[in-house]
Design a protein around this nucleic acid. Structure first.
Lengths: 173, 173
DNA sequence: AGTAAGCGGAAGCCGATCGTCCACTTAGGA
DNA sequence: TCCTAAGTGGACGATCGGCTTCCGCTTACT
């Protein structure tokens, strides 16, 4: 692969991520190409169809999430804080329907790995008594998807409220 | 207006509400017509364009919400319970992007009336100490819109969590 | 029974997106 | 430096799906 081709591939992925985040997964291919500063021809040579592109995006995204999770976990002993930090980061970063694919069939083994690690943190946060015990890792993943798949949801306002909802009720309640 | 015409008008509104709830406001007009058991021609005679139809839907919807709010409020003295009941009812009933129009320009005075009444309840719930005081009526309305505009959000799971998030934290926290 | 209102849905229109194709450009080895 | 094959861009015809009109038939009301 020639150096310029590789560069263009990266530019396309980056642009696709932004554009998909803004306009959803059905965004015209030409917009992605334009944003990347390449022609549609180039886009189609690298990614024969939309699904291939979205799958590549999802793959990349899951790996970044795994990294983010590791970082959040190693920042301190507070598991619940780590979960919160992870969710906030993921929503900020992976905005848009990139994660729609994530929920789907592409890269299922990577997704598994992510869930597995998240599971540990959630379990610990619950054992610490910081997180309510009637929700699970699946709910956290669903929460990500809700924000990822719904551009209409304004995270600044609702994410904190949702996180409060996940937190442990005080004993008196 | 002939009796059958009136009947058809009602069928169309009902069908439109369901279909829009399922598939969003951009749903093909023909689907609405088919669901109502009428031809597209009939649909277009009653509602010259999509906006007219959506506006009619929104109007109807807001009035129903006002009724529901009144009912919830008169069920008992617990204002916070009334707010919760109202939100649950509204989300169940008004599912779909019907409310998108609601947030927009159509029927602004009806919307005002709704907000005004809701405001009273929210204030009381907060005064009772049942609802956290750093959120407002606008947040409740936004919450409705989030669920109304985003078919991807599964209310069964998230609505209770959101409502918990709105509830007052216990003092110890 | 007469008549005007109402009805259905086929047909044509239109805008938008897809994906191909080919003449031109450029990277990188000899 | 020069040569060549990889790479590029974007115009273009095909396709698609939804919108809206239109007209011959039906039905409610008087």
């Amino acid at each position: 692969m020639r150096a310029d081709a590789r560069r263009n591939r990266d530019k396309i992925l980056e642009a696709a991520r932004d554009v998909v985040a803004e306009r959803g997964p059905d965004v015209p291919m030409e917009l992605i190409a334009r944003r990347a500063g390449v022609g549609v021809g180039t886009l189609y040579r690298r990614f024969p169809d939309r699904n291939t592109l979205l799958a590549a995006l999802a793959e990349q995204y899951v790996h970044e999430l795994i990294d983010a999770l590791g970082e959040a976990a190693s920042a301190g002993p507070d598991a619940w804080a780590a979960v919160r930090a992870f969710v906030v980061h993921a929503v900020d970063e992976g905005r848009g329907a990139v994660a729609a694919a994530l929920a789907g069939t592409s890269a299922p083994e990577a997704r598994e790995a992510l869930v597995e690690r998240l599971d540990v943190l959630v379990g610990q946060a619950q054992a610490d008594g910081a997180m309510r015990s009637d929700v699970g890792t699946g709910d956290v993943m669903d929460l990500l998807n809700v924000f990822a798949c719904n551009p209409g949801v304004i995270p600044e306002r609702f994410l904190p409220l949702m996180l409060d909802g996940l937190g442990r009720r005080s004993p008196g309640r």
